[in-house]
Design a protein around this nucleic acid. Structure first.
Lengths: 256, 256
DNA sequence: AATGAATGTTCCGAATAATAAAACAGAATC
DNA sequence: GATTCTGTTTTATTATTCGGAACATTCATT
């Protein structure tokens, strides 16, 4: 079901040393404040290899060392912020997410598509569980479905073929025809609803965000527990609020 | 005056292939939507080298390709967010910066020290000019001086020795004794003021942010044009507001 | 259509640089 | 004070990166 050739699977192509560096880096990012020997244990490399790569990364400033423990540093923030501000609308969305979250007192997110995945770019919510930067299957998210609903049939078909429609929960849409029907419904309504398709007990609503030239920028979404997210709330109150905020972003881009 | 051995200068040590990868990556981040030949022009490498490195990065998902043009992707957001949430207080500060900015209608930032530099971690303000991830000399920032004022004399001396006190504007403190006096004043007052020491026409105020265990987390700061940032505003109204917000972060960490 | 000038991609031998393993140093633990 | 962890350095061997050139492809121009 999943795409034949995933990320990093063509381990023959390109620069294998670079692959090692990033493998070490990713392991380091997962762990927290880890030592060289611990990193060696968690990777498939020898100690001297890990040592040398880590030394290089520290010298470059991407990894920081604090009393023997290593951590990914803020240098990556410089690069990731570049991606985050590639389009002016992304920055505008940041504020909208925050206001939306504060006003509704719900968790709010702004999601963008990259490589057929939904990426959390901005978020308002609890202190823990930041989600930012995390990537999720488009078809299991309200925001993801909103984005899919903007694509033509061929692109959606290609998405289904390469990314697949894996079941995340019992409610996840796994049938291409059912997906097509759902996308049509979203186009009609102007908003998408997620009914525990990504996580049990979680519902969400999402609307598309457009630029002044009517290009799709991403999706704005609010989510919460089924207990609070009643049909009335999800289909009445929230869509309008979300549409307002999406509209504000558009206006900000045009005149602000 | 600057430190003898800067970032990436020991180009003999470690993995030189990794250095190449990041050199290409940084060039790519600076440029926007750039082609392989253009990248070749901007770096000191041959086309086939750039090609191979870029192919690897695309395969790993760190670089994305859109109709011939390459860009840094959101995959870095995953890593940088790791750094940004290393301490719970960083996340708490995010909300405070936003609220502070909204309430005062000024630009607000949360700054943290890394490798003797001030790193902008959170920010509220204009759409363009995000600053996030950018690194600045500590002694030229109100927030930087606040952080320095928390260190003991030996550490400050080491900072001065390695990072130096370069003049950024005419007002920048470049004398170690003057710095020591200023830090003492900050410790007395509980807040720091920046009087066009980092940029002409810009004043700012900053306070330290502590954890419930009284560890220094970073600095909270507000900045704006000299015209609006009068002595009264800078020394009366703002310090109290900032202290309140810093206190809120502490309380959030303790009980929230 | 045909030409030309870009670009992106592949191939290859030569040279370099990464590697593993082991030895060393230093710290912490008991 | 011995032992067992770490982190660091060294070395010969091996594997990989590298640059250059050749090839393929796209695009613009006529």
């Amino acid at each position: 079901m999943s795409r034949d050739r995933g990320r990093g699977e063509r381990d023959d192509a390109g620069v294998s040393t670079t692959r090692k560096t990033f493998a070490i880096l990713e392991t380091l990012a997962d762990a927290d404040g880890v030592t060289i020997t611990e990193l060696t244990r968690r990777t498939e490399f020898t100690k001297s290899t890990v040592y040398r790569h880590l030394t290089t990364l520290v010298d470059l400033g991407y990894v920081v060392e604090r009393d023997g423990a290593y951590d990914v540093g803020f240098r990556f923030l410089e690069i990731s912020e570049q991606a985050r501000t590639r389009r002016r609308g992304y920055t505008a969305a940041k504020r909208s997410v925050f206001e939306l979250g504060k006003e509704t007192d719900e968790r709010a997110v702004f999601i963008v598509e990259e490589e057929y995945e939904g990426v959390y770019v901005h978020r308002y919510g609890s202190l823990s569980d930041t989600m930012i930067g995390k990537r999720r299957p488009l078809h299991s998210l309200a925001s993801g479905k909103v984005i899919l609903s903007e694509w033509d049939d061929d692109t959606v078909a290609d998405f289904v073929a390469t990314a697949g429609l894996d079941a995340i929960t019992d409610n996840t849409i796994t049938d291409p025809d059912a997906l097509a029907a759902e996308l049509e419904r979203i186009r009609d309504r102007g908003y998408a609803v997620n009914n525990e398709e990504h996580m049990d007990g979680l519902r969400s609503v999402a609307v598309p965000v457009y630029t002044p030239d009517d290009d799709l920028l991403g999706a704005l979404s609010v989510f919460g527990p089924t207990s609070r997210f009643t049909d009335e709330y999800v289909h009445d109150a929230l869509p309008n609020r979300l549409r307002d905020k999406a509209g504000e972003i558009r206006v900000t881009l045009a005149y602000g």
